[in-house]
Design a protein around this nucleic acid. Structure first.
Lengths: 197, 197
DNA sequence: GCTAAGCATGTAAATGTTCACTTACAAATA
DNA sequence: TATTTGTAAGTGAACATTTACATGCTTAGC
């Protein structure tokens, strides 16, 4: 399952990411990719079978990074609230450093004809959910998060709010301070889902 | 500001919508559009200056419809809860009948190089917010919705949750019953945002 | 330690396809 | 007769991908 990646492949993935931030999905052409890499178009095909594979590799690389960031974020935290805050703060900081990933994940139409790409995009969302779910469950069990609605429904609300925030950031052209507004979002969410008893 | 639309233009818009549901954004080509309309590619240009204008017209038409649906939905309701429920139920029913609009709105990458298209997509979100905002505000003033967080933050949470639901429905290929899961979502949201005092 | 074969990695140029859009013309309508 | 609305056949640009060829590195055999 685990596909190791060569140095050159990683370079190409990073070039693709840079293009995504500056020129968007439609700018991600083999021509631009070659220009960004300072070599010919044909050379790309020495490292990837096709454009689709590049996007898949980019998304899979993202999924791995997100997973690591999440693991790190919650490792030295105890309470569900702390974990919740730390998880989202880490996530937001990561996307702030790598805005091209936001373009990739939130362009749902990104090469939509490809099943593989869509599945990988969904996989990324599942990675985030994998880490968030146990935190919310623990919070509910300790009765610090509300038990009025199910864990799954809480998860949907939290994830949806986060995604909307990212979406707004993206269509604004990354022009507002995502860390500041993200912090507000986290606090609002926490206030809302905290058990009121 | 108001651009009236000819019958033929509406036909083209509807054909474009049909293509969006079946073939996605990348399938929306002048060739497919002509085939769907049973006439030649050139004929399209008798009615629209270009493809971009067709998409803009489609989105503006959607914005108008959404606006109407929303007005209807809340007209015979009194309490903020009733209005809240009715608003989303109407919205969901509308999208269920017109799934191509979901494709259009939630493909943020839809001809992303066009400023006009992106602005129109954002306009649609604002139409929804325009109707939702006063409901939430009224609910907060009557203290049936929580005042622990601001109206704007509540709006973000509600809109984000709704958008995520629609997104999931879309990437599933419209395969689950959006009215059923939508109903659950509305109830969960209401439970959560209701004032707990 | 030299050399030659083999392999990895690059280039330049071309390929065929798809695309949005245009042009020259024709039929119907008013 | 003038306007609207259609057609058939292009047009050039952009695109992903391929092909034929070149260069340099590794390494096995002598």
């Amino acid at each position: 399952m685990e596909n190791a990646i060569t140095d050159r492949q990683l370079e190409i993935i990073e070039a693709a990411g840079k293009i995504l931030t500056t020129a968007g999905v439609s700018g991600l052409t083999t021509k631009n990719l070659a220009k960004e890499m300072n070599f010919s178009e044909g050379a790309i095909y020495r490292h990837f079978a096709g454009k689709e594979q590049i996007v898949v590799a980019l998304l899979e690389y993202l999924a791995e990074q997100i997973d690591e960031v999440n693991v790190q974020a919650v490792s030295h935290r105890d309470s569900p609230q702390d974990k919740f805050q730390s998880l989202f703060q880490a996530q937001i900081a990561f996307f702030k450093e790598n805005p091209h990933f936001v373009v990739a994940v939130f362009s749902a139409g990104l090469l939509e004809e490809s099943k593989q790409i869509n599945e990988t995009i969904y996989k990324i969302m599942q990675v985030m959910m994998k880490h968030l779910m146990p935190i919310i469950m623990a919070g509910q069990q300790q009765n610090v998060f509300t038990n009025k609605i199910t864990t799954e429904e809480l998860l949907n609300i939290v994830m949806g709010t986060f995604r909307l925030q990212m979406f707004k950031w993206r269509i604004s052209g990354f022009q507002f301070d995502i860390e500041r507004s993200g912090y507000n979002m986290i606090e609002s969410l926490l206030t809302l889902i905290k058990s009121s008893s």
